[in-house]
Structure formats: structure tokens, C-alpha cells
């Protein structure tokens, strides 16, 4: 793993215009060439609205990502709880439960990647407490298990991937890519975890409101406990990230 200071070192980054003044000067002739008919380069009329309109056409004709599975059987489920879960709002609730389950499960794996950075020798920075990091990882897994149990209580299938669960994966794809890349530092990986915690906190907030709307007071209370833990995660991750960034700037 690169040392955190390595990741912010000065070097021959070649992506910007200033790196190659002569070539950059030629690149900047673009507008003149477009204005000069003899250049052969001719752009079409219009602007980015053309793309926006095409998007509207597709949005109007699009099918949804998929559906939320109806609870297959109420056998074994707490019938009273299940009885209350009828109508469209209950589907939304199941979809959001499945989203939380997917996110917490993915969160545990995101922290696996962050832990790998934390235990790798980094040399230049004070280590963060790996045990605390592992505790966060386990808490995410416990939350996933808790949501699974809640879904079972309602007769919903916790093994199904609902539309919002699917999207949780799409949304967090970049975070996992950032944390699992061996070239990124612990601080850079924690930045991805910080983004995940912010999303997670919002997610539990919304789920608590929804559970109360559905009359699931017991669930709401369990979710409140999860949110309390997530707030602690957010505080810790933010503190670690800030601390590493500060140490990094002091070392530069």
C-alpha cells in the first residue's frame, strides 16, 4: 500500500494542460478550427438540450427496474404483524427494508476492504484502532441480520433483491471500487466509508418513520438502536478521516 503522503506527493501528473504547453496550445486551437470552414471540422447545431430531450423520450417509455415480491406465505410469520401489512404502502416498506438489508450487508464488505488498509503497514501515520473498525464491520452485519429477521416477521422474503435493494448496490459500486483498490490509502478508503455512513444514517432515519407509519413500533425501536450505533460510526469514521488528513498535511 502506498504511504498516505505518497498519495498526495508532487509528481508528473500528465492529465492537465499545463503539463505540455506546446501540445496544449495546439489543443486550444479547437474553436478556431471549428470556425474555419477549410479545416473540414464541422459541428452540428444545437446544444446539450438534444441529449436532455432524448432522455425524456426514454423516461416516458421506460419499464421499472422490477417488482417487489408479494409475501409468498404467511406461515410462520406473526400473523398480526402480517395482517397489518396490506396495500401499496406495505410494498414500499418491504422494498426499503430490503434496501437496508442490502446496504448493511454491502457495508460489512466495504469495511472488510477498509480493514485491509488499516492492518497493512503504512509507516507514516499513527494507526487507527483496528478493533474499533472491526466492531463497526460487525455492527453492519448485525444490522443486516436484524433487518432479515424483521422481514421474516412480516412474511417477506429476505433473499429477494427488490428494486431499492438493487439500486443500493448500483449506488455504492463506486465506494467499493475506491476502498478495494490496493493503490488507495487508508484515508482515501475511509472517505468512501464516510460517504457510506452518511447514506446509512439517512436510510435508518427514513426507515424508522416508515415503520411507525406501518404501526410496527417494535421494529421502529430496534431501528432506533441501529441508528444510534450508526451515528457513532459516523462520528468515529469522520474523526479518523479528519485525523489522518491532518497528520498527512503536517507530514508534507
Amino acid at each position: 500500500m502506498p504511504q498516505s503522503t505518497d498519495a498526495t506527493r508532487l509528481g508528473i501528473n500528465r492529465t492537465g494542460l499545463q503539463m505540455s504547453p506546446q501540445h496544449a496550445k495546439e489543443m486550444l486551437q479547437t474553436e478556431d478550427l471549428l470556425d474555419d470552414e477549410s479545416s473540414g471540422a464541422q459541428s452540428s447545431p444545437g446544444d446539450e438540450q438534444a441529449l436532455a430531450l432524448a432522455r425524456q423520450e426514454y423516461i416516458a417509455a421506460a419499464d421499472p427496474l422490477g417488482s417487489i415480491p408479494a409475501p409468498a406465505t404467511l406461515k410462520g410469520a406473526a400473523k398480526t404483524a402480517a395482517k397489518m401489512l396490506t396495500g401499496r404502502r406495505s410494498q414500499v416498506f418491504i422494498d426499503k427494508l430490503a434496501e437496508r438489508l442490502a446496504f448493511e450487508r454491502g457495508g460489512a464488505r466495504l469495511y472488510d476492504a477498509v480493514c485491509a488498509k488499516a492492518i497493512a503497514p503504512s509507516g507514516d501515520l499513527n494507526k487507527i484502532n483496528v478493533d474499533e473498525l472491526l466492531e463497526i464491520r460487525d455492527a453492519e452485519a448485525r444490522h443486516a441480520l436484524m433487518v432479515k429477521e424483521c422481514m421474516e416477521t412480516l412474511g417477506a422474503d429476505p433473499t429477494a433483491q427488490t428494486p431499492c435493494a438493487d439500486l443500493a448496490g448500483v449506488e455504492s459500486m463506486g465506494l467499493l471500487q475506491a476502498a478495494s483498490d490496493p493503490r488507495t490509502t487508508l484515508a482515501q478508503s475511509l472517505h468512501a466509508a464516510l460517504a457510506a455512513e452518511l447514506i446509512d444514517n439517512e436510510g435508518w432515519d427514513g426507515l424508522i418513520v416508515l415503520a411507525r407509519d406501518m404501526g410496527q413500533e417494535n421494529m421502529a425501536r430496534r431501528f432506533e438502536q441501529a441508528l444510534k450505533e450508526e451515528r457513532e460510526h459516523l462520528t468515529k469514521v469522520r474523526r479518523w478521516y479528519t485525523q489522518l488528513s491532518k497528520e498527512m498535511s503536517e507530514l508534507m
Binding site: T15, E26, T30
Partner: peptide
């Protein structure tokens, strides 16, 4: 796209 091209290659319309 010039972050990738590093100013070596023009970004202009060709044969449409």
C-alpha cells in the same frame, strides 16, 4: 477527455 488524451490528440468532428 483531455485528461486521458494529454493534449496529444485533437477533439474535433471528423467525417460525421
Amino acid at each position: 477527455s483531455n485528461n486521458i488524451l494529454q493534449s496529444y490528440t485533437d477533439v474535433l468532428p471528423g467525417r460525421p
